[in-house]
């Protein structure tokens, strides 16, 4: 099957700033994660993919046509952008119907499709309320609804789960999985790793405008686990706390900073460590805890340095 999204040596810069550097990949059916820290170039990549930006160099193709300047492809493409922008004076139903009309659906068909998709994103009760009054999660879901309503072959979802409660996160994650299983191409961008884990194992790792890795999420997980993370703690009784924590098997190092009274721990299995700290919090008077490098930035720095 021909790939639906093709980047060939695509680069994009805004003035002197390089947003995307020599990116090449192809996407077929299925769900893909676009993973990278803030400012990595995820949004620029998505904008290039759905024809909002021209590549400064190289080519970007969508459904076999140049992504920029081919509005016809949007019969089969949906975008849920990261901007929190809606037609504020429209009801949720009107909003989806209006955008369906732009796709060429007549009013009856648009109503049917809109009702159907609004049910899918669980907004039926609020569909006749103005979107201006929606909560953050509801806004996110109606945005998703307009992207899904015309049943596109290719879906670009930029941070789709932002602001949703756990129940809806689950619902939307399941929906994304289902769409992938149906043979659609879904590219989901996020900087939160575990959000992706629930949806797909195929990821594109992007950092500083470059695709660092393209592959299975498990491998990245392993990389992460091999990379020790630093945790800083402040407690009433730092020495007592240190005595208990040293006993943990996956502790790499533990430093007591005398001047500030802080403990600095390097750990491999964060889950077990956090559980133990929880248990000790009352006895040792744990007052504060910072995970100093548990962001993707540090993981990527680690990956880059490898």
């Amino acid at each position: 099957m021909t790939p639906r999204v093709v980047f060939k040596k695509a680069s994009r810069w805004y003035g002197p700033v390089m947003a995307l550097n020599d990116v090449s990949f192809e996407l077929g059916p299925g769900v893909y994660g676009l993973l990278g820290p803030n400012g990595a170039g995820k949004s620029s990549l998505l904008k290039l993919a759905c024809g909002q930006l021209r590549p400064s160099q190289g080519t970007v193709e969508l459904l076999g046509r140049p992504a920029f300047g081919s509005p016809e492809v949007f019969h089969s493409v949906g975008l849920c952008s990261d901007t929190d922008a809606l037609f504020e004076d429209f009801t949720g139903f009107q909003f989806v119907c209006a955008l369906l009309s732009l796709n060429g659906f007549g009013s009856i068909q648009a109503s049917r499709l809109a009702t159907e998709v609004i049910e899918t994103v669980d907004l039926k009760d609020a569909m006749h309320r103005k979107v201006g009054g929606y909560s953050k999660g509801m806004r996110q879901r109606i945005k998703l609804a307009q992207a899904l309503a015309h049943k596109p072959e290719v879906l670009f979802l930029d941070e789709p789960l932002t602001g949703m409660d756990p129940q809806n996160r689950k619902r939307i994650s399941d929906l994304m999985k289902r769409l992938g299983d149906e043979g659609r191409t879904v590219l989901v961008s996020t900087h939160i790793l575990h959000e992706l884990e629930q949806v797909t194992r195929r990821v594109l790792l992007i950092h500083n405008g470059r695709v660092l890795a393209e592959g299975d999420l498990g491998e990245i997980r392993d990389l992460l686990d091999r990379h020790p993370r630093s945790v800083r703690l402040r407690a009433r009784d730092p020495r007592g706390l240190a005595r208990e924590l040293v006993l943990l098997p996956d502790l790499v190092s533990l430093t007591l900073e005398d001047a500030s009274g802080h403990l600095l721990a390097e750990i491999r299995k964060p889950d077990a460590f956090f559980a133990r700290v929880q248990e000790l919090s009352v006895a040792c008077g744990v007052e504060e805890m910072w995970v100093t490098d548990e962001n993707l930035e540090s993981v990527f720095s680690y990956l880059v340095s490898k």
């Binding site: 909002q52 509005p71 949007f74 975008l79 952008s81 929190d84 922008a85 037609f87 732009l102």
Partner: peptide, 15 residues
Amino acid sequence: DSKTLTYFLTRPISR
């Protein structure tokens, strides 16, 4: 300004 232009630009209609 209202960032809604994207909704129009990602439809199968000409500019």
